[in-house]
Structure formats: C-alpha cells, structure tokens
C-alpha cells in the first residue's frame, strides 16, 4: 500500500521540471564550453611544444598528456575534486573541479591532434615557404598552420562532441548537469523511459548536427599529398 506521502514523493512530472532541465542544460553547456575553450588553448600550446626540434622539450608535454589520455576521466575528476583539497589544502567547488579536470583532459587530446595535423603537412611545404623567402615563423603561419588547421577542424569537432558526452561524468560529483537531473527525475517519477528519452534527446540534439558538420568538413578537405 502506498500512503499519501510516498505518492507525493514519486510525483509525476511538474511544470517546475522544465526549469530544472533548463538549468541543467545550462550547467552541462557551460561546463563543456568553458573547459573546451581552456582545453583548446592549453592543447595548442602542448601541440606546438610537441613539434619542437629539441628532443627533451618535445618530450616534456607527454609527462602530462600521456597519464591524462591513458587513465579514466572519473579517476582524474575524483583525484582533483576529493584528492587535491586534502593534498594541497585548497578547497575546490564541484564546478571548479569539473572545469579543471575536463580542461586538462581536453588539452591532452587536443595536443595530440595539433601535433599530428602539423606533422601531416609534408616537408616540401616548408621548403616551398623558405624558397619564397619566408622565415621560419612566417612559413609556419602563412603556409603550414593554414593547411594544418583544415586538417584539424573536423577532428577537433569530433573531439568536442566526445568531450560533451564526457561532461556527463560531472554528475558523479553531484553537479546538477543534465545527466544528474535525469537521474534524480527518473527516481522521483519512476518513469525512466520518458526521462532518459528526454536526456538522450538533449545530448543528441547538440551532438548530431556537430557530427554531421565534422563529416562534411572531413570529406571536403580530403586532399592527399
């Protein structure tokens, strides 16, 4: 038998839930966008350092990148959120911890993309730049970077889509993103299919057009050297 209290607790959808979802979308999007922005900037720096001629300098970013690429994101997040405050004595808010973790994680993967895109430009392109009287820096900006960018963009979009999915991890430190709200609502309403259907839809709505764009751009730049 269910008493009135229980029925109230397992209440059906309410108008207020729309707002809850809207706020959750805000959290997911802001966490994702902010960490992608920071991650991209750091990633570019990593990628450029990886292209250095000096073997030691070239190796340095790997010390950060490889552990980030080869360990679970959840572990990284828990290490930052629970571990860092104890270790370093700084108190991190869940939002900050999420941004730090996702930014660094994005940076590690983005660094590899940048490095590979620049490597993909054949040496002959560098030589062509030098032959035209450009210096090293000028050749890089005017000849190499532009071509590398065209290779990079579709891959970057694919990475961004992946990181959007990964941002759902922040729900595990109780940040109220879409996934977390879905979990709360699915327990409250006891209607998991409706709730998760909405959650799937929200993620899909953002990801799918981006995925198509990446496919389109990748096909368009399909030039071979």
């Amino acid at each position: 038998m269910q008493d009135v209290h229980t029925i109230g607790k397992y209440a059906d959808f309410a108008v207020g839930d729309i707002r809850t979802f809207a706020e959750a979308c805000g959290v997911t999007l802001s966490v994702t966008l902010l960490s992608l922005l920071i991650g991209t900037v750091i990633g570019i720096i990593f990628g450029l350092i990886r292209c250095s001629k000096n073997k030691l300098i070239r190796f340095l970013p790997l010390i950060i990148m490889e552990p980030l690429r080869n360990s679970p994101l959840v572990v990284q997040l828990f290490l930052v959120y629970y571990g860092l405050p104890v270790m370093a004595g700084i108190l991190l808010k869940d939002y900050t911890a999420a941004i730090i973790t996702l930014s660094l994680n994005t940076a590690a993967f983005f660094g590899v993309l940048v490095h590979n895109s620049i490597l993909a430009i054949p040496v002959s392109q560098w030589e062509a730049g030098y032959a035209l009287g450009h210096g090293k820096f000028s050749t890089f900006i005017n000849v190499i970077a532009r071509q590398a960018l065209r290779l990079l963009i579709p891959q970057a979009i694919t990475l961004y889509i992946g990181q959007l999915q990964c941002s759902s991890i922040v729900s595990l430190i109780s940040l109220r993103d879409i996934t977390r709200v879905g979990q709360l609502l699915s327990v409250r309403t006891m209607r998991p299919f409706a709730v998760w259907g909405i959650v799937f839809g929200l993620y899909y709505l953002v990801s799918f057009p981006l995925a198509r764009l990446a496919d389109y751009l990748a096909k368009r730049i399909d030039y071979t050297y």
């Binding site: 990964c166 996934t179 699915s186 006891m190 998991p192 998760w196 799937f200 799918f208």
Partner: peptide, 22 residues
C-alpha cells in the same frame, strides 16, 4: 552508430539500470 556516438555512456548505462527493472 549515430545514436550511440552522440549520447553519453553514463546516460546509456543509467537508462538500462533504471529502465530494465521497469
């Protein structure tokens, strides 16, 4: 392929975890 790649794994696993018992 499209659907699975464009939605988070965490949501997928919650879907089964909360959905299957229903």
């Amino acid at each position: 392929v499209d659907f699975l790649r464009n939605t988070p794994f965490l949501v997928q696993i919650f879907f089964f975890y909360y959905g299957l018992p229903v």
